[in-house]
């Protein structure tokens, strides 16, 4: 082999090596670059600021049709939730009560969560079957059922999506645990900690344990 050919081979080999490392900059050189079509297929998540929303739109009335056909069997005609299926509508002013009803209208902080969840997880047993327009329509109808929007001619789209805010958004706070007396500074009591102990509650009063034998 001539010197020039060797040089060409050396350059080619170097280029090849550089090519490999350029294709993957990582330390282990494992995996391959994800193609745009692949990312598009899976990257359907939507954030509160609207990032990830697909182009499209949907009417309240179209959403009602989809809801009645694909959602009402579990969630009920009015979003009241059949049996133990999730309640979607109502619950206003119940969060401080003994029976809080956590719905889209009463509890959920962001509209984007409805769109994102419906598109990835619903309908139950037939997930990821709704188109972008159908998801907009269904989201619009759920907002309408919850009286977040009151115009039945409303059309929800990627353009106006972030203008629709949910009323409970401001009522979410950060984690402040530990929030109990951790007794880190004082040693927990070991001897003569109480003078009297009384039983104040018993599980068998309710008797909801599976397979529990009644005494």
């Amino acid at each position: 082999m001539s010197k020039s050919l060797k040089a060409i081979c050396a350059v080619a080999a170097t280029t090849l090596l550089l090519g490999i490392s350029a294709a993957n900059a990582g330390k282990y050189n494992l995996g391959r670059k994800a193609l745009p079509e692949e990312i598009k297929a899976w990257n359907t998540d939507v954030r509160p600021d609207g990032q990830g929303l697909p182009k499209g739109q949907g009417k309240v009335s179209d959403g009602e049709t989809i809801y009645n056909e694909q959602c009402a069997a579990c969630h009920g005609d009015f979003g009241e939730g059949k049996d133990r299926w999730p309640v979607l509508v109502g619950g206003k002013d119940t969060l401080k009560s003994d029976d809080p009803v956590k719905t889209i209208g009463s509890y959920w902080p962001y509209t984007s969560t409805i769109f994102d969840y419906v598109r990835r997880s619903m309908p139950f047993g037939n997930a990821q079957s709704l188109s972008a327009n159908e998801t907009y329509a269904l989201t619009a109808y759920l907002l309408y059922m919850n009286e977040i929007i009151d115009d039945e001619k409303f059309v929800l789209s990627d353009k106006n999506f972030t203008s629709v805010r949910l009323p409970n958004e401001k009522n979410f706070t950060k984690d402040v645990r530990p929030d109990t007396p951790t007794q880190a500074q004082q040693k927990p009591c070991m001897k003569n900690c109480k003078t009297e102990v009384k039983i104040t509650g018993r599980a068998r009063v309710l008797d909801v344990t599976p397979d529990a034998k009644k005494e």
């Binding site: 954030r47 509160p48 969060l95 401080k96 959920w108 984007s112 969560t113 009522n171 979410f172 706070t173």
Partner: peptide, 18 residues
């Protein structure tokens, strides 16, 4: 703010805040 960190797995306090 996925469904499992808003509708669920948030801890509702007595004052109605979560």
């Amino acid at each position: 703010h996925a469904r499992e960190e808003t509708s669920k797995y948030t801890d509702l306090m007595e004052n109605g805040k979560a």
